[in-house]
Design a protein around this nucleic acid. Structure first.
Lengths: 152, 152
DNA sequence: TTTAATGCAAAGTGTTTGCACTATA
DNA sequence: TATAGTGCAAACACTTTGCATTAAA
């Protein structure tokens, strides 16, 4: 079992839960994916081990509560992805209003700007911010160029 | 009909749609609410005019597509609220991981920090950002104090 | 007078739950 | 061996759709 799995195994067992093969497979699917996945997509990936959809949902719910994964909603669809771990501190999604495509914006230099916003919120509202779901909405590069082409 | 309604009437009619009493009532409910509402809550507000739930959903979908309102998802529940208008440019939600409460963070001084982030994303990715859904996650004031009390 | 919009009920999603059974610590 | 976890199917909540009817421009 790789290091990451052992790390999560500890978290799960420390809460009195059992680290079953099913949970292991679901978690592995999420760790090995570079993008967010739907419950259905995860299910497709693990069902050959005869794991039921209900178990996938139950695992996802547990992982969310244990702060191992996060749930994000894009266009009414729920996706799941690993939470902050292994140098992935901030994850911004961008959605194009024209073509409805979603892109990930992962950019180290944004972290500073994000931290400024974060600190300000913490100070002015007397709370602690540990995570963020940020979805920016606008025009993607391609659709932006299409718009420009039209007006020329 | 108040000024806001006339403004939205124009947008709706410019797309060839009809500005019916139903759409007017749904829109009015959203305009007059200071917080985000579920489809059900909007329905409760308009059903005495014998407007059906399906019509509420159809109106909300249309308004979203026309960029009049925005849909936000909190804990798996969809809420609707007016989009950027009348001096409400940025709207950040905060969710407490302990008590699951949601609070609105509306704070003029945050706008600058947000714009920095925004500009950086635009420049580095060659796109245009026109709106944002930001959900910060952490510990609210009350739960933070409870935590502190425990350790003392 | 044309065409979008409506209400209703039925159908469709994605997600959760009850239950008898299973496997983990 | 006690208890959490499982698969399955049924139940669920929210949202969408088909259709005959209505009303807005």
């Amino acid at each position: 079992m790789d290091n990451n799995l052992i790390y999560f195994k500890k978290i799960i067992e420390s809460k009195g839960y059992k680290f079953t093969i099913q949970k292991q497979k679901v978690l592995k699917t999420l760790i090995e994916s570079s993008i967010h996945l739907t419950a259905e997509e995860i299910y497709k990936n693990v069902k050959n081990y005869s794991i039921g959809l209900a178990t996938v949902y139950r695992s996802l719910k547990m992982f969310s509560e244990l702060n191992i994964i996060k749930e994000i909603n894009i266009n009414g669809v729920n996706y799941y992805e690993m939470k902050i771990f292994s140098g992935k501190p901030l994850h911004i999604h961008f959605k194009c209003v024209k073509c409805n495509s979603i892109m990930d914006i992962d950019n180290k230099s944004l972290d500073i700007e994000y931290l400024r916003l974060n600190n300000k919120v913490e100070k002015e509202n007397n709370l602690i911010v540990s995570d963020a779901n940020i979805m920016l909405i606008g025009l993607c590069t391609k659709c932006r160029e299409d718009e420009n082409a039209k007006t020329n």
